[in-house]
């Protein structure tokens, strides 16, 4: 009910419908206006697009070509068609990395989303010292990653660590070995990942929360909605553009996770935390197979895109 109020407000107040050509210029409503709009639209995008196209788009397109070649960085790339892609089908390490990446993302994305949204809601209030708490929440993101690895590994320490001591206290007979055991290294890394990034996404959500019109809450309250109802019917719908942004970025960043795992476990023990980004790096820079590394990067790209497009349409359906 409250959601409808938003739509009412934004379109109802505007007087003439948006489709009507504005003001005096009414010569040839169709193509001329379209062209004008296109030109103006491009003029907005161009300054950024020039840099983006040159510095990012061209290398990325090159990457797609390189994925079809055998290339050792120095010499010319030799075109080998889809060989790199067929090689992936039989490469068990690639399968492991792919599985681990999906495992990491599948848990990390929802957990981070819930944690950061909770933080954002909590710290969007007029609390005393809210500036301090917001800064603290952001701290994990700016703390040296080595310090994070050391302290968390200490907390996870199978014998002396406070986490396992607590678990033993709770009556867990055989607490996990966390980062020192292949069975539990991934959950350990995910926990640290959520902890580290929740402040980052909190910041983005905090900006989004500022767009929720205050009077909607009052209207909802008058309607007798409880806290949960207000969250579900006011906050979430108004937050949707931001949520879309956050989920897309969070998804991509989770699928691309690299440095945290490198420092925490370096992919180990065994291959238990090997992820795709690390696989790409080691194939490229350690084994000098940049063609194959590029092909793996392309598959990672398509996974990201598939998920993003799904989110895009999901978001659009909700919008409609």
């Amino acid at each position: 009910m409250a959601t409808i109020a938003v739509d009412d407000r934004s379109s109802g107040a505007s007087g003439p419908s948006p489709a009507a050509p504005p003001g005096p210029r009414r010569r040839r409503p169709g193509s001329r206006l379209k062209l004008r709009n296109t030109l103006i639209g491009w003029s907005f995008i161009l300054p950024n697009f020039l840099g983006f196209g040159l510095l990012t788009l061209i290398p990325v397109v090159t990457l797609f070509y390189l994925s079809l070649t055998e290339w050792n960085v120095f010499g010319g790339a030799e075109f080998i068609g889809l060989d790199n892609y067929t090689r992936m089908i039989g490469d068990t390490s690639y399968h492991t990395a792919l599985f681990n990446t999906i495992y990491y993302s599948a848990v990390h994305i929802p957990a981070t989303l819930v944690a950061s949204l909770g933080l954002a809601l909590l710290l969007n209030r007029k609390l005393r010292g809210v500036a301090f708490f917001r800064t603290v929440a952001f701290f994990p993101y700016i703390t040296s990653i080595v310090a994070i690895a050391v302290v968390w590994n200490m907390l996870f320490s199978p014998e002396y660590g406070p986490i396992n001591q607590f678990l033993t206290f709770l009556g867990v007979d055989d607490p996990p070995g966390w980062t020192t055991s292949a069975d539990s290294s991934m959950p350990a890394v995910i926990i640290v990942g959520v902890w580290r990034e929740m402040g980052y996404y909190m910041l983005l959500l905090l900006a989004g929360l500022q767009t929720v019109p205050g009077e909607l809450y009052e209207a909802a309250r008058v309607d007798g909605a409880g806290a949960w109802g207000r969250f579900w019917n006011v906050t979430l719908p108004c937050l949707r553009p931001t949520m879309f942004f956050v989920t897309v970025i969070l998804t991509i960043n989770s699928l691309k996770v690299f440095d945290l795992i490198l420092v925490m476990t370096d992919g180990g023990p065994g291959q238990s935390t090997l992820v795709l980004s690390q696989f790409i790096y080691s194939k490229g820079f350690e084994e000098n197979q940049f063609g194959y590394a590029s092909a793996v990067a392309v598959t990672l790209f398509f996974i990201c895109i598939a998920v993003t497009i799904f989110q895009f349409f999901w978001n659009r359906r909700k919008d409609a």
């Binding site: 709009n37 639209g41 990012t56 590029s294 790209f301 895109i305």
Partner: peptide, 26 residues
Amino acid sequence: FPGRDALFLLYVATIAVPWQAYMIPQ
């Protein structure tokens, strides 16, 4: 304007490519 959404998708798409993969060509 026409092509706006496609262009935007292109922008977002490049975020999905890990930098380690194309940093040498760049």
